[in-house]
Simulated scan of single mutants.
Amino acid sequence: MIKAVATGSLTLGQKQKADTLDALANGYKAVGALTIDIVQLIEEVKPVVNQGNKAQIVKAMQT
């Protein structure tokens, strides 16, 4: 991915480079925040999920 960004960066002007780097930074922050939420959710549902109800829970989450 870094190579792709570097290659794309060569064809962009300074403004577009700055915009691209800002978008990447914002995306990285969003993924980081989402990761924290996912870990918390996993810890919260661990005591509830078992082999008997796992399939139903997965199906409900998908819908």
Rank of each mutant, 00 (worst) to 15 (best):
A30T: 11
K59N: 10
E44T: 15
P47K: 12
L12E: 06
L24T: 07
M1E: 07
A55E: 12
A4M: 06
K15T: 14
L34K: 15
A25Q: 08
Q16P: 01
Q62I: 02
K46N: 09
L34T: 13
V31I: 12
Q14C: 05
T20G: 00
T7Q: 13
G13L: 04
L21G: 01
V49I: 13
G27L: 05
D22W: 01
T11A: 13
Y28N: 10
I42D: 07
V5I: 15
A33E: 15
G52W: 00
K54G: 02
Q62A: 12
Q51E: 14
A23C: 00
S9Y: 06
G13C: 02
V48D: 09
K17S: 05
V5Y: 09
A25I: 05
A60Y: 06
M1H: 10
P47H: 07
Q62C: 03
A18Q: 15
M1A: 14
S9G: 14
V48H: 03
Q16V: 00
I36F: 04
V39G: 00
K46E: 10
K54Y: 05
I57T: 11
K54N: 03
Q51P: 06
V5K: 10
G52V: 01
V58T: 12
P47V: 08
A33F: 02
G52A: 12
K15C: 02
A6G: 01
I36E: 08
D19H: 05
M1Q: 07
K46P: 00
T35I: 04
Y28S: 11
Y28V: 06
M61E: 06
M61Y: 08
A33H: 04
S9V: 02
Q62N: 07
L21V: 15
Q51Y: 03
A6S: 12
K15H: 04
V39R: 10
T7L: 15
L21Y: 14
K54F: 06
V45N: 04
D37L: 08
L34C: 04
A23Q: 13
G27D: 05
I57P: 01
I2P: 02
A33W: 02
G13N: 15
M1W: 03
T35D: 12
D22H: 09
E44R: 15
M61W: 08
T35L: 03
T20W: 01
L21K: 14
V45S: 04
N26T: 12
D19R: 09
N26A: 14
T7M: 10
A6D: 06
